[in-house]
Design a protein around this nucleic acid. Structure first.
Ligand SMILES: [Zn+2]
Ligand SMILES: [Zn+2]
Ligand SMILES: [Zn+2]
Ligand SMILES: [Zn+2]
Lengths: 150, 150
DNA sequence: TTGTAACTGAGAATCAATTGCAAATAGTCA
DNA sequence: TGACTATTTGCAATTGATTCTCAGTTACAA
């Protein structure tokens, strides 16, 4: 069995919950690609499948996947939370282009390390963190520069 | 005149907008204390004043204050955006306790510097960033430890 | 002072997200 | 295998935050 499915089943069993076809569909869809997504996008992809499922079910499945450690909320665009799978993909942070919406991922060891140092200073036990840098991507800067020259 | 008021007036004038008593009340309230706040809290404080003002007006004023560079959204708690003034207070990031909700502010120069380095690597022009670390504060860790011993 | 575009409060509308309910069903235990 | 039951589902109604509409008010430039 696929590993994420095993994890999900184990999580559900441990909580006395059921592994339903609907929950499997959501899980499969999420792990069929890598990248960011939101509830709306998930619904669009799943509603038209044979025996498509309801929006409410997706909303009810998200927290389960999060608690199972399979996905996490990583940012918020247009006032909607964006998720990504975290099982099998290493932690990273994000650059978000204000103009075109593109998202770039990075991981800077030193930043990670320094955060721990800060936490120690406060006696704070960190569970998770989120670093998002908003600005203009390379492309959008070039476009802007060109349009100025016109 | 108080400096933030001057800035706000200048911003409004430049955009052909008006400096009204309502907008002044919101501005005054925000600058009467330092710390984080949300729309709800602001409304609670302002509604009962003589000539209290409406929630809609507060909602309409927030983006103006943001664009004027006087406040900014810093995080989101219970699905509500939290703001803080940014005029006259230096940039910082946040530690947020998952249990008691307390928020601690820190500034780590080296993290700031490294972010610029990352941006350079991507040819990305940063405008703003947000770093939030969630976990358990010193107090809540102690409480938990004690309750375990019972 | 006057004219007018911007502003206000109140309530309606919107949007994402949650919830109540009755019918369906996964998973357990004979 | 078959019955049992707590969980889940879809649907529609609801919530809660935010935005919009509109008619009356007002700041402020000329
Ligand atoms: Zn871009
Ligand atoms: Zn990512
Ligand atoms: Zn705490
Ligand atoms: Zn702060």
């Amino acid at each position: 069995m696929i590993k994420q499915e095993l994890i999900f089943r184990d999580y559900l069993r441990a909580k006395g919950l059921k592994f339903t076809p609907e929950r499997r569909m959501v899980l499969e869809e999420i792990f069929s690609f890598s990248g960011h997504f939101d509830v709306e996008a998930l619904y669009d992809k799943l509603r038209h499948r044979v025996g498509g499922l309801s929006l409410a079910t997706i909303y009810r499945t998200m927290p389960l996947l999060i608690k199972a450690g399979l996905i996490k909320e990583v940012m918020r665009c247009q006032n909607r939370p964006q998720y990504e799978r975290c099982f099998g993909s290493p932690h990273h942070d994000h650059l978000i282009c204000i103009k075109c919406g593109r998202v770039f991922e990075f991981r800077e060891e030193e930043i990670e390390r320094l955060q721990d140092k800060v936490c120690q200073r406060f006696g704070f036990r960190p569970i998770e963190h989120r670093l998002g840098i908003k600005g203009y991507c390379k492309n959008c800067q070039i476009k802007e520069r060109n349009s100025r020259n016109v």
